[in-house]
Simulated assay, not measured.
Amino acid sequence: MSRQSYQKSLQELREDVLYLSELVAERVREALSALEDKDEAQARQVIEGDHEINRIYLDLEKDCIDLIALQQPVASDLRFIASSFKIITDLERIGDLATNLAQYAIDAESDLYTEVDIQRIGDAALDMVDQSMDAYDAEDSDLCFSVADRDDDLDDMCDVASETIVRDIMTSDDFEGDGDIDMEEFLVDVRRLLLTVRDLERIGDHAVNIAARTLYMLDNDDALLF
């Protein structure tokens, strides 16, 4: 492979990683919309679309391995390829979490705890993903640290949401035996809501992973990796 072709392959890898991130983010948005609207058809589209994300991930994985094995890149190019390899893994896992959210939308029996704003939490997590990929695209180290800083805010939002749910269970009169709710159904919905919050928090964690790998790629700085 000529030097020109090699540089073109590196640029194509960057563009393909960015495309995968856009696709994954859109899947999360669709899953959140399905949750809000109780749209089973949209939720099933997200679940059925997961195979496309997996296919692209495997193709990019092969591209990374081929570039390392065949071109034996050094220094910054090696960090770029290795970091891109790690980043697509985080993106694929975000896609899996979008599938989880879509399944929760299908399984949801009722609205619980309207004071828990799932859409707001989801938007915050997606903003972190978008910002981490902006850092990757623009080669912006400062953005990497900004994503990491925002993770504490997302964690706080998720903690408040989970505590709200648990506190209500502990104090609700319905648990004294006088309520008329179907307790088994209620607890299933509570578990689903807690899992939704947990998965949104995990999306934020993957965004931080992407930012950490990007920082390492740019500056050989492992400050956010541990």
Rank of each mutant, 00 (worst) to 15 (best):
73 P>S: 06
73 P>V: 05
74 V>S: 13
74 V>I: 13
74 V>C: 02
75 A>V: 08
78 L>N: 03
78 L>V: 13
81 I>V: 15
83 S>M: 01
86 K>S: 03
88 I>E: 00
89 T>D: 02
89 T>P: 02
92 E>Q: 10
92 E>K: 05
94 I>F: 09
95 G>N: 11
96 D>S: 08
99 T>V: 07
100 N>V: 04
102 A>Y: 00
107 D>V: 11
107 D>R: 15
112 L>P: 00
112 L>C: 02
112 L>Y: 04
113 Y>E: 08
115 E>S: 13
117 D>Y: 05
118 I>F: 06
119 Q>F: 05
120 R>H: 15
123 D>F: 05
124 A>I: 04
127 D>A: 11
127 D>H: 05
129 V>Y: 02
130 D>A: 11
131 Q>G: 03
131 Q>A: 12
134 D>I: 01
134 D>C: 06
138 A>T: 15
139 E>G: 10
140 D>W: 01
145 F>N: 08
145 F>M: 11
148 A>L: 06
151 D>F: 08
151 D>L: 07
151 D>T: 07
154 L>K: 07
156 D>V: 06
157 M>V: 12
157 M>T: 12
161 A>D: 07
162 S>G: 12
164 T>V: 04
165 I>E: 05
166 V>T: 11
167 R>D: 14
168 D>W: 00
168 D>K: 10
171 T>W: 00
171 T>P: 02
173 D>L: 08
173 D>A: 13
174 D>C: 08
176 E>L: 15
178 D>Y: 14
179 G>A: 06
180 D>T: 14
180 D>A: 13
180 D>Q: 11
181 I>S: 07
181 I>H: 14
194 L>S: 12
196 T>Y: 03
196 T>V: 14
199 D>F: 10
199 D>E: 09
201 E>T: 14
202 R>G: 06
205 D>W: 02
206 H>R: 04
206 H>N: 05
207 A>K: 05
207 A>L: 05
211 A>C: 12
